[in-house]
Simulated scan of single mutants.
Amino acid sequence: MALVALASAKGSPGVTTAGLVLGALWPRPVLLAECDPAGSDVAIRMTAPGGQPLNSDRGLVSLAAAGRKGLGDDVIMAHSQQLDGGLDAMIGVRSPEQIGGMGGLWAPLGITFNQMHNTDVLADCGRIGPASPQLPVVQAARLVVLVCTATGSSVAHLRERLSSLVHHVDARLGVIVVADPKRRDGVKQVWSVLDAMSVQVQHRWHLAYDPAGAAFFDGRGHGRLDRTALIRTATEIAAEMAASVAMPSQYEYDMAQAAFPGGEVRPGPDLEARR
């Protein structure tokens, strides 16, 4: 299966909400992993089935202790828990101070996330930069998606982060712009900025800025969730994103060719389409 890293260039443009809604709509088994050093939002915003509080001690921190003996699918899932609605989640640290106990877990954790046998992983990595402790998780991902808004400040930080990130990751890149559905001009301006860059961003999505829909992922929702603009736009994004990571990338195909130069290594359908 595959690891998708969701991150922001600056501030909180909606990475956690995007992770929750995409995870809820993901077409295959999926785990939402909170890898944001700033601290967990999911444990505060969401509940366990039946409205019970989530166990904030079971997650990334408990995994750090257990992971010293090795990581694997069973270990990952043993330190995860189910949210009300059915989404599996690994709760992040309670506070930034707990990051010091993570040690060298980040690199093997990212590799394990990307190699889980029956589950995709959506990693909420929060704000990232070259010195971010969770960067090894981002580097292990098959797809790295930066979330931004259509404001000038957010786009400026997006441009700077993409220019830096391309030197640290080999994954395909994507951008989600969180914007009012009526502000398509603002979204187009973001695409124009990306077009002017030398960095190749393979995937671009517009996720509706929708406080009424987002309230459902903060314990405050009312009415029909499926009728919200957030769900309408996220449904299409989740399907496209899941399909994109289900196919081998050009990088993975090249690596397979290098490892088996005389073998019958064939490109996936996305690579055939490029030829």
Rank of each mutant, 00 (worst) to 15 (best):
A2C: 06
A2T: 01
V4I: 15
A5W: 04
A7V: 07
S8I: 07
S8Q: 10
K10D: 09
G11F: 06
G11L: 06
G11T: 02
G14S: 03
G14L: 05
A18G: 08
G19L: 02
L20K: 09
L20I: 07
L20G: 08
V21N: 01
A24Q: 12
V30F: 01
L31M: 10
L31T: 04
A33H: 06
A33Y: 03
E34M: 02
G39Q: 03
S40W: 00
A43T: 11
I44Y: 12
I44L: 15
A48S: 10
G50D: 11
S56V: 14
A64F: 00
G67W: 04
R68N: 11
R68I: 11
G70E: 09
G72E: 07
D73Q: 15
H79D: 03
S80H: 09
L87N: 01
D88G: 12
I91W: 02
R94Q: 11
S95F: 07
P96T: 00
P96N: 08
G100K: 14
M102V: 12
L105I: 06
A107I: 05
L109M: 08
I111L: 13
T112Y: 02
H117S: 13
T119E: 11
C125K: 04
R127L: 05
P130D: 09
A141G: 08
R142M: 03
V147R: 03
T149Q: 13
A150N: 12
T151I: 08
V155K: 06
R161W: 09
S163L: 14
S164R: 13
H167W: 11
D170N: 13
D170R: 13
R172P: 01
L173Q: 03
L173I: 00
L173W: 01
V178Y: 00
R183D: 15
R183H: 14
R184P: 07
V187H: 05
K188W: 12
Q189N: 14
S192D: 14
V193Y: 03
A196P: 06
M197S: 15
S198N: 14
W205M: 07
W205Q: 06
H206D: 07
L207P: 02
A208D: 06
P211D: 09
P211N: 08
A212G: 09
A212E: 15
G213L: 05
A215E: 10
A215L: 10
A215I: 07
D218K: 13
G219M: 07
H222E: 14
L225M: 06
D226E: 13
A229H: 12
I231Q: 04
T233A: 08
A234Q: 05
A238R: 02
A239I: 08
E240Y: 02
E240T: 07
M241N: 00
A242T: 01
A243T: 04
S249Q: 00
S249N: 03
Q250K: 14
Q250R: 15
Y251P: 00
E252G: 01
M255R: 15
A256M: 15
A259M: 14
F260P: 01
G262R: 12
V265I: 14
R266Q: 14
R266E: 14
P267T: 00
D270P: 00
